[in-house]
C-alpha cells in the first residue's frame, strides 16, 4: 500500500503540487491523469526522491520514503520509469538491464532475471548486445520498463510509458503491465496522457489539475463520467 499525504512541491516560484494525497492498494493499478503541466511527473519524482518536498509524507508499506536518497528508495523496492524512458544510450541493452538488476541480484542470478525480461519483450532479446542508442522509440520504452521490473519492485511508477508508441504497441504494453501486476502483487502508479487506454487497465484513477487532486475514484466510474472526461481528460 502506497500512502501519499499532503504532498507539496515547488520549483522556485512555480508551485507544482499543492497538498496532494492519495492511496494505492497493493496489487492494483492507479491511473494518474491530468492535462499537461498538471503535476503528474512531479508527483512521481517526489515519490522516488528525485525532487525534494516542502510538506507531506510518502509511505510505502511500513517504510517512510520521504527524505530518503533516491538510490535507497529504489532499493526499498520502488521502480521508476521516468518520462521519456531515459535509457542509458551509451550502454548496451543488456548492460542497461544488468544495471537495473545489479543492486538486488548477484551476477549468476542476473542472467535468469534478464531472461524474464526478454520473455516479456522479445524484441529486446534480439538487440541485447546493441547500444541502446540504436533502439527505436518503442524499443527504448520497453527497455526502460524492463530495466525497472528486472529487479522485481513492489511499487512501479510509470511516467507516460506509451509516449510515442503506435496504438497496437501501447495495447501490448498495457497487457504486459496488467499481467505483471497480477503475477507479482505489484502496486502501480500509471501516469498517462492516453487516458482511455490507462483507464482500460486501471482499478483506480486519480485526476490532477494544477497541482491538486480533483477526482479520486474507481477507474470505471471515472471512465463513465462524461462531464469529467470532457472537462479534464479530453475524450
Amino acid at each position: 500500500m502506497l500512502e501519499v499525504e499532503n504532498l507539496s512541491v515547488a520549483y522556485g516560484a512555480v508551485q507544482a503540487l499543492k497538498g496532494v494525497s492519495l492511496r494505492a492498494e497493493t496489487g492494483s493499478i492507479t491511473a494518474v491523469l491530468g492535462a499537461n503541466g498538471a503535476g503528474k511527473t512531479t508527483l512521481l519524482r517526489a515519490i522516488s526522491g528525485l525532487v525534494s518536498t516542502q510538506t507531506g509524507t510518502v509511505r510505502f508499506g511500513s517504510r517512510t520514503l520521504t527524505g530518503m536518497p533516491v538510490e535507497r528508495i529504489v532499493q526499498s523496492g520502488v521502480g521508476h520509469v521516468p518520462e521519456g524512458g531515459l535509457v542509458i544510450t551509451e550502454l548496451t541493452v543488456a548492460e542497461n538491464l544488468e544495471l537495473g538488476a545489479a543492486w538486488r541480484y548477484g551476477r549468476r542470478e542476473r542472467a535468469r532475471h534478464l531472461n524474464e525480461v526478454y520473455d516479456l519483450f522479445p524484441a529486446l532479446k534480439e538487440r541485447s548486445s546493441q547500444h541502446a542508442s540504436s533502439l527505436s522509440g518503442g524499443e527504448r520504452q520497453m527497455l526502460a520498463i524492463g530495466r525497472a521490473v528486472v529487479s522485481h519492485p513492489s511499487l512501479l511508477l510509470l511516467d507516460e510509458p506509451s509516449l510515442g508508441l503506435a496504438p497496437i504497441i501501447t495495447a501490448n504494453l498495457m497487457a504486459v503491465l496488467l499481467e505483471l501486476t497480477r503475477q507479482e502483487d505489484l502496486t502501480v502508479l500509471l501516469v498517462e496522457q492516453n487516458a482511455r487506454s490507462a483507464l482500460s487497465i486501471a482499478n483506480w484513477a486519480v485526476v490532477i489539475n494544477l497541482g491538486t487532486v480533483v477526482v479520486s475514484d474507481r477507474a470505471e466510474t471515472v471512465a463513465a463520467d462524461s462531464d469529467l472526461r470532457h472537462h479534464y481528460l479530453g475524450f
Binding site: 538510490e71 531515459l86 542509458i88 544495471l99 537495473g100
Partner: peptide, 18 residues
C-alpha cells in the same frame, strides 16, 4: 558498469539503485 552509468546518466543511474 555502475561507474560508466553514473558518468553518462547520473539520474537514470540513481533510479537503478546506483
Amino acid at each position: 558498469l555502475r561507474m560508466r552509468a553514473a558518468a553518462f546518466a547520473p539520474e537514470a543511474a540513481r533510479l537503478l539503485g546506483v
